[in-house]
Amino acid sequence: MKLEDINKENIFKVPENYFKEFPGRLDKTMKEDKSPKSVPVFTIQNVLKMAAAAVFIIFAIVGIRQLGNQKSNSPLDILASVTTEELLAYLEDSDISTDDLLTTIDLSIMEEDDSWIEDNILLPEYELDDESIEHILNEYEIEMEYL
């Protein structure tokens, strides 16, 4: 079968009176809220939340691996001895602000290149189970719709 054999007729439909009512709804939306309805994934706030979670996940993973490989008294090893639960509890009670995090990590790379996320967070060998992911998301009130 060739492409030209297929009927080009539009198969998509709209609810009754959609185009008649759309201008009114748009006008209402614009008066109620001057900003667009949809929430961009990479708003500063969302990036900060994700970055905060990411930094601590990475620290926890690196720490656990380091703990398994060697024992010494270096700061990294001491950090490695901290459990994920302790890190999460610390984060919850600490005064570390998102500004502090911003000064220590380069967020621009996350916005410019999605591969950064894949390379640095979604490492296949560090895959987390569903329960851990849900726990972390709940801890930092990260809603799945933003991810």
Binding site: Y18, F22, R25, L26, T29, M30, K34, S35, P36, K37, S38
Partner: peptide, 10 residues
């Protein structure tokens, strides 16, 4: 519908 509204707002 959401995107169309966003487009017109832009």
């Amino acid at each position: 519908d959401d995107l169309l509204q966003d487009v017109f707002i832009k």
